[in-house]
Every structure is written in C-alpha cells, then in structure tokens.
Write a protein that binds this DNA or RNA. Sequence first.
RNA 1: GCCGCUGUGGCGGAAUUGGCAGACGCGCUGGACUCAAAAUCCAGUUCCUUCACGGGAGUGUGGGUUCGACCCCCACCGGCGGCACCA
Length: 825
Amino acid sequence: MGFFIFNNKTHNIFRKEDNNMAYEHTAIENKWQKYWQDNKTFKAILDTSKPKYYALDMFPYPSGQGLHVGHPEGYTATDAVSRMHRMQGFNVLHPMGWDAFGLPAEQYALKTGNNPKDFTNKNIQVFKKQIQSLGFSYDWDREVNTTDPKFYKWTQWIFEQLYKKGLAYEDKIMVNWAPDFMGGTVVANEEVIDGKTERGGYPVYRKPMRQWVLKITEYADRLVDDLDDLDWPESIKEQQRNWVGRSTGASVFFNVDGHEDAKVEVFTTRPDTLFGAAYIVLAPEHELVEQITIADQADSIKKYQDEVSRRSDLERTDLNKDKSGVFTGAYGINPVNGEKLPIWIGDYVLASYGTGAIMAVPAHDERDWEFAKKFGLNIKPVIEGGNVEEAPYIGDGAHINSDFLDGEQKAEAISEMIVWLEEHQAGEKKVNYRLRDWIFSRQRYWGEPIPVIHWEDGETTLVPENELPLQLPDTNDLEPSGTGESPLANIDDWVNVVDENGRKGKRETNTMPQWAGSSWYWLRYTDPDNDMELASQEALKYWSPVDLYVGGAEHAVLHLLYARFWHKVLYDLGVVPTKEPFQKLVNQGMILGENHEKMSKSKGNVVNPDDIVNQYGADTLRLYEMFMGPLEESVPWGEKGLHGSYKWIQRIWRLMVDEDGKLRDEVTSDNDGKLDKIYNQTVKKVTDDFDRMHFNTGISQLMVFVNEAYKADKLPVEYMQGLVKMISPIMPHVSEELWSFFKISDTIAYQTWPTFDESKLVEDEVEMVIQINGKVKGHLKVSKDLGKEEIKKLALANEKVQETIDGKDIRKLIVIPGKIVNIVI
RNA sequence: GCCGCUGUGGCGGAAUUGGCAGACGCGCUGGACUCAAAAUCCAGUUCCUUCACGGGAGUGUGGGUUCGACCCCCACCGGCGGCACCA
C-alpha cells in the first residue's frame, strides 16, 4: 500500500463537506456535447491526402416510441471505432439519418386527420435529441431523411434508371391482398406470416393485381457469388444464399401421349434418377392441365382446382402435410426409356417454383414417396441401398435399373444424364432460383411516388428527369381509396395530368415500399447536398465502400439483399465504383430484459435510455453496453452491472483528480518504471481488441491497468494521458474533461492514439509450468533463453516433482521452452 | 424436418496458435475508515473434502485423437435464430 492510498484516506475526511469536485456527469456531458456541436468537431471533409474510414449504422425508423436501449449498442460500437480511427489518422465518415417513410405515420394520419409529414418530423426531432444526448460523433451536417424531397428525388431517379434498363416492369400478378388492413392494401410476401399481415395480423388473400416489380432475379447469381469476398458473418451469408436458393439441375421434356403439341417441362436436381420416374405431377394452376385432362376426369380435376384455390398458404403448407392430388387421365412419355407415366395434379407442387411441374421419383424422394404410397403408385428403386417399400432412400449409391448409368455414383450419373438429355433434345442443364422478383409497389400515401404517368392512349412514360422530385401532395385529409389503390387516387389535382398536346393522363398512385430509401442511403451521406447527382463521382470514389456496417440481424435478408441489388445496378451504370456496398458487416445482438426475455411493453421489462442518461450519464450507458458482453451476442440487461460501470468511471476520475478538482500530485513526469509493463501490455491489448470490436475484453484490460495504477506511488503523466485516450472512444465526455487537465489541446478527438514499446513487454525471466501426467505440480522461473536440457534438469530437481515421481520410470518428457514441461510416468 | 449459431462458477462473461480453466465486472464474505450508515480502499470467493497443510473432481452428455483438449474428430442432449412440400 503506497502513500497515495494514505493520501486518499486523508482527503476522504473532507469529502463530506466538499464533494463539489466529484465526477458530475450531467455538467460534463452537456458541456462537451455543446463544444462538439459549436465547433463542428466531427465534420468530415473530403481530403484525399488522408486515408478514409466509413463507419455506418443502420439508420433507424423514427418511431413515436423513441429510442430503445438496443439502439445505442450498435451506435456506440461504430462510434468507438470511428473515434479510434480518427486518433489513428483516418479521415472518418460517420453519419446518421432517418428511414422515415413507413406505416405507423400513415396509420396515425388516417386515424387523426393529421399529415404524416408533421408527425414524422416531430418524431425525428425526439430521436435526434435522444441520440445526441449519447454523445455520438456524427457529422450532423450530413444528416439524411428519406422523406425529404431532396433525398427522394434520387430514389425516384434510381427507379427511372431501373425502368430504362428493363429492370422495373408492371405485371398483373398474384399478390397478398389484405382488404381489412388500412382500408385495403397489398403486402409483400415477407410481410405475411401464417396467412396474416406481420403488422396488425389482418387476413391475407391471394388476388391478381397490377403491380410494379423489380427484376432482382436477373442479379441472382451475382448476389450469391459476390458474397464470397465480403467480411460478413457466415450466418448472414448463408441466409442470403438460402433466400436466393440457387439450385442446379436439369430441365427434362416429357411428350404427352396423344397430344402432339403438348410437352411437359419439369425441373429436377436429380436427372440421374430419371429411370426411376414413376409419374408426373403438375401444379393445379399449370397451364397444360385443361388441355390434357381426359373427359372422364374433368369434373374431379375442376373440383380439386377450386378447392386448392380457396386454400390459404397456411393450409397448403404448415397445417396440411397430407398429400393430395387427382389423376388427369393423361400420360407422359419418359424420354429415356419410353415408359408411359401417369400425369397427376397435386398442390405439393408449387406453380411459383421451377416450371410448376415435377417428375416424381418416389423411391428416392420423400414427398414423392408419400404421394405414391397414398395413391398406390409404382415405386421403383434406381439407387442401391435402403428398402424403398419401407422408406425412400435419399443417400448416394450405385445406380441400378438405369441402363447406361448402372453402377455409377450420383455426381457422375447426373452429368452423364445431362449429356444424354442434351444429345437427344430431351432436356438441358438448368439453374433454378427460389428468389422471386421484388414486388415494388404499395397502395399507400406515405412513400416515394413512383414517377410514372399512364396516358389515355395506353402509353406509359416516366416523369422527365428534370421534373424530379415528383413530390407527394400535402394533405391533412387522407382517405382510404377502398379500391385497393393508395389514398393518392383521391387527390384529383395531383393524379390528373395533361401534356402539351392536350393528352390526358393519370399519375401512378402506387408508392414505393419502405425498402426503397434504405437501398441506397449510404451513398447520399458522401455528398448529401448535391442537386445535380445522387452524389459526386469524387465523393463516391473517395468514401466507397462502407468499411463497417453495424445493425440488427433482422435485416439479414431483405434490406441487405435489396441494397446489394441496387448497388450492383448502379455499379453497372458506372455510378458507384464498387461491386458491393458494405465490406464488413457486424450484427449486434439483442439487449434482453433482466429476466432474459426480449424487452417488450407487455412484459414490463423495457429500459428507457433517457432514464439511464439522467441517472448515470451517457458515458456510463455506453461503457456498460460495451462491457456487458460480446457485441454480437444477446445479453440480458442488469441494473447492478450498470451501476458497476458508473463506479468504475468515478474510480478513474478519482485516480487522476483530487478533492480540489486538480490533477493529483502523483501524476508526474517522473517515471519509476513500475507501470511500464502493464501500461504497454494494456496499449497493445486495447488497440487490438477495439480493432476487432472486442470491447468487453479491451475494457477489462483497462480495468486491470487502473487497478495496478491504484497500487502505484507515481503515475507517469504519459501513461495517464494514454489511459484517457484509450477510454475516450467508449466514454468520450469524461475523457474530454480529464484531457483538459493536461492543457495540451482543446479536444482529445484528434490526438494520436497511444503506441506501445515492444521491448517493455519481454521479460528476461519467464515462469514455466511443470506438469506430471498433465497435472500442474509446480512452477519454474527461468531465463527466457534457457535451453531444453537445462530446463529438464531444473524441472527434475524440483522437490515436488521428485516426491511425485518417487523413483518411478519416466516414460516421456516434453519440454516447450518458455511454456511447459510435461513429465509422463 | 433441413441449415446456421451456441452450451464454462451464484450471475454477465475471459482463455489470440492444442499448453496453469474461471481474466475483468456483478454479487457475496471479511478487514480498514466512521459514533453509525453510505461511499471508498484492501483482501478472499468453481465445487467437494479437510481445523489446517493437503487431496479429489470440474468447461452440456458419452466416446476418440494427443505427452497435454473449453479448443480438434465422432455420436447424442438442451437453448437461440433462420428456412420450411423449392423438386
């Protein structure tokens, strides 16, 4: 215990009367937030002489609920990375904005007769204030807002480019029609859960409707292949691959017996099992059904089709695993052996995937096997192994009953069959995708208007580029159209247009989905005020790509896939310089309630960040969220842990500041060397851990250093400055305040990140472990350069070792210099 | 059902290349300071056993590879997330 502790004790006596100089989080945080704002400390300026770093958060939807403690977790992580990079000499772009189109604002407006714009702007103000109270180093001059016409001008511009490239088209397609939802609207597949709308839980029906669709399928291969070069979590890449669902196989053509003009095309990933095909199944909606059905079966087929069309998706999949189907009476000819195969229809074959028709190989496919068992169809094995009467055999094996494929294994048989099919014009190699084109229109007011005009003569044109943005009309009187169109259909002034020749037309009343703005917003941050381009080439070249993108895993597929798609289209147009938008992606985990359950109002376990900031301060909240566990994991909130973080900040404060509010006398330029090793170790570990976003372990190393510093008599000023710098990415306010004691610079934000001296880390003596049969029996302090033989001798001479060996034979002796000796007896 | 992740003290979590399991924090226990409490500082804290010295067990379970396994391999069990008749 050094005199420093003693010193502290004596001062404690006076603390009761005078604790003015204690850590005052509110005053400090207000002071520095104002300083940063007034001085535009974090303004990012394009400067090609410096290396850039682009750290991005997924921008939030500014809901009326305000900020949740989950938000600051990811934000603090990117903020810490940004602050550290600034200190390491990078030119950092760290922006924030608002994904502000969306359903709640429109619902609110419909209910209350207000304008969604005002409501949204109010929510943004609340969100912004809350976010600013946490001290993030955003460049607020680059704030974007998807609902701002200056922003959505370019969303519309991108739509027009898609249209010109043939990637946006209108189609009458089956959509998810939710008549009870907001006066009737269409929702995307991904917004339907168990036959109900994701929000509100209204029933959803299939209905054909005119929709705008984006041809994302054209990019399917690139969306899969380009994942390989990205530094993303494997789970997210896997989800995207599954979503695109690329599968390689073959198309096989079956002629229909007695119908010269009819041909059934099936898709299969197992063309090698063609000799085992027992029957063919068409989706009930398949276009050939009517043509080939024989008169006797027509009634039952019709009845079945009606039945199926009334079934919801829920009944077709989840609830009904029982196979159903009806025989058409027609037969297909197996091209490889001329066998006649009965053609059935059944709803286990989906019209939307592949060709809507399959060849059934019941011996080697579970679904086909169930169907065949139920309807007593032939089950013929073509691969050895298993008993196909008992269960389908899915594994690999030698082919049998397969003519020229007999004896071959799966992979070989597949390629040989494809060669045969192509030679005989009976089929071809084929790649299929699960991914469907992206339904891009919504029947809503509060979204970007689709810049299209439908003229009375049937022509469809884009709104000319120089007339963009096509603004949403202001209105306080939103009415559901009731027809399935958006409320815009009621606003005659806006909908009806006349061109210079007197031709009449109507504007497209569909608007874009919420995904539109978020599919390109990160580009706008690079040059947010540009009226001529979505961003200048110079800015895009300098700042692209996003180096670090942090957000929740709930956007694993939709947002991140749509964003990649748009980015690739813009890349093809020469607008952006990189193939992919986000080089590194990190998903922060969820913050759970204290009861380990997801935070929700109904469970009463929601923590409001405002309360934490008031009681403990933003630095404590930031520290706690970074210390509570690995960023990627879901971790439960704990009030006790939060309090511990608060105490640690005060402990640092007291380490350096005395009761008179001055730097302690122990902080000195006189270095007695006692903290050399731990300090250099700390710089090394913290730099490394923060770099890898392992904040919890980096912070723990800083705690170790502080604990050591408390035991030291002298606190070298250089080390104290280094400490303040190292905590500044996590706790920026208190760091600025402590930094100001050194009177070096006004702000710590651009001070140089500490470096470590490697020579201070190596010790002349190392402690080695002596094990006997893998169990630790003793330790050995030796010179780090000592040779194996000497170590061996010393180890064997150890008293404890002698005792344990007790004259037994040594069977083996392993020496790893500097680490371990293991004696096997 | 399939795919991915995950399982370590009372709790959150460490262990970077296969080399002393449990860093750091919370909680708890004890001590110092105080009339007292709070705060602070110091020390201890995986479990079982022992007054103690010591001994034994131990990273979801069972096996394997290795001088040595939280770490690698095989099988199984539990938790979380995703997909789900995708041919």
